[in-house]
Design a protein around this nucleic acid. Sequence first.
DNA 1: TTGTAAGCGTTATCAC
DNA 2: GTGATAACGCTTACAA
Lengths: 336, 336
Amino acid sequence: MSTIGDVAKRAGVSTMTVSRVINNSGYISQETRERVERAIAELGYVPNALARSLRFKRTKTIALILTDITNPFFTTLARGIEDAASEQGFSVIFCNTDESKDEEAEYLSVVAQKQVDGVLLVPASSSAESVAFLRERGIPCVVLDRRVPDSAVDTVRGDSEAGAHQLTRHLLELGHRRIALLNGPAAVSTAADRLAGYRRALDEAGLGSAARVYEGAYTMESGYRMALQLLADVPRPTALFAANNFIAIGALRALREAGLRVPDEISLAAFDDLPAAIMIEPFFTVVGQPAYEMGQQATWLLLNRLAGQGPTEPQEIVLPAQLIVRQSSAPPPAAR
Amino acid sequence: MSTIGDVAKRAGVSTMTVSRVINNSGYISQETRERVERAIAELGYVPNALARSLRFKRTKTIALILTDITNPFFTTLARGIEDAASEQGFSVIFCNTDESKDEEAEYLSVVAQKQVDGVLLVPASSSAESVAFLRERGIPCVVLDRRVPDSAVDTVRGDSEAGAHQLTRHLLELGHRRIALLNGPAAVSTAADRLAGYRRALDEAGLGSAARVYEGAYTMESGYRMALQLLADVPRPTALFAANNFIAIGALRALREAGLRVPDEISLAAFDDLPAAIMIEPFFTVVGQPAYEMGQQATWLLLNRLAGQGPTEPQEIVLPAQLIVRQSSAPPPAAR
DNA sequence: TTGTAAGCGTTATCAC
DNA sequence: GTGATAACGCTTACAA
């Protein structure tokens, strides 16, 4: 790759003159400009952003650290982020932590070294460490999808509590009295919030003592295992509330293997929709979150911070979750 | 962010000594090392990878340029890539071109400026420009999923021709004689290859003149439109071959709106599977490609190149596509 | 075992 | 209008 020096030599000028042409700064005679531009074209010169960044202390690059891009919710989120970032000339480095705090710490260290201008973080745990790490190093950060309780940090997330409340109420209104929650890891705020919404709905219905909560991971395997466990319970729940889409899919598999028809014999509703795009036959009753918009808004917030714009106090943007009733939920068998 | 100089000052040594501690190079007394390490910890110092890269001319970063991460095929591919890259300490910058050559060119320029060590490219067109751009600048590149005919360049892709042949044969064997292909853009090699496989199967069956080809884009909207068009044809095809998953989904919508039952009244088969993960009820008969492995292999190939390993001539790795017969294909109505 | 100087590719500053 | 110089943070080569 040729350098600014190569261009300068070829055009018979100094590097500064080339720099001025590239950046359209300062005065330059028409003739010199043309000579330089010709040299640039002939050499296929592209400026070295590393050198530039070293001076400016800005890389025009942000990091996106999430748990698993393969989950359609995060895929859509990522797309919203990349669109919003590239719109303003920023590049996005993406990292999958698989919910591992160690992976997260490792990635944070790498992107800090690479001098990213900011970080969009879906934290693997509610602990304040990661946010503190970034803050100590002066790297702006927006937390996505989840809360980090003891940190004053910008956050963009869905309303898990209200969404879970809505979904639980929906099941209650169908007539269910034994509703089990197949939850994610307690250390993740969305799991805590969905549990809270679930409990509140039960409490309001005077069924607080009927709560049945399983704790697992946000994966299909975990959903499968929790459902198996639950099927052994007596009396068996008549409805399941899966705390995310992957848990729902795993649970559905377990139910089918057990020969239970959904929703005729047991209802199943979930948090997080699957994109309409890839669903042949939308089946699950869900509470959907606006993933794309969430990504967009988080990116705008972060880039505004980088530009020194907006209020100084940390923002918390909570996007509404929306109940979409489809086929996987119905009144309990007894009620029909 | 503190610099190596700050650490040196605090530890009362020169920057070189700090550098030696960080990189475990050269001799250092135990006592000095400890003083330096303490200073590093106290300052929360992380080395500036920009400065390092400027010297080494290696950024340990690669770019992934694809059309749309939201397509499950590419999502899985991306995950395979990130896993393989991070395994070896590389970061991945990801870019969505939406099949636009201009976007692609823009992204290529940006990542060239950012001095990425290599590029994984799903080219928006078969033209050799992008590959040439990278080659001129000495940036190693592996082309993914698609061929770039007139360039000697490393390529990792699925066997579109054989896959399309297989799928078409499957429909022929079911008894279909009027099989329409809803194809992607002719400028993309996968579309050309799928067309070739389709034609070969028809020719072998002596039905070459029965070919019915629609050209569109690899999107749901396009699938929808092509299916509408096709439904007006007389006589109507009894089977549809959608050249990718999005086209299939769009086409299915059109068929349903027209009141046609699949597969009873019309069959529909497609290239590219939807991940088992996110399918509640696998429905489409498809030819699936090993997306994750494709990403992995491409990354290994690229990183080997960066390490100066492997044969010098361009590699072409073609992974097999596999027919998975499910519910969306059945014998034509007449045959039952 | 530790330190000094030069240079990676840019650009801000100050001269001419 | 244009150019020389220094600096961004780091490491290689050479000295001490």
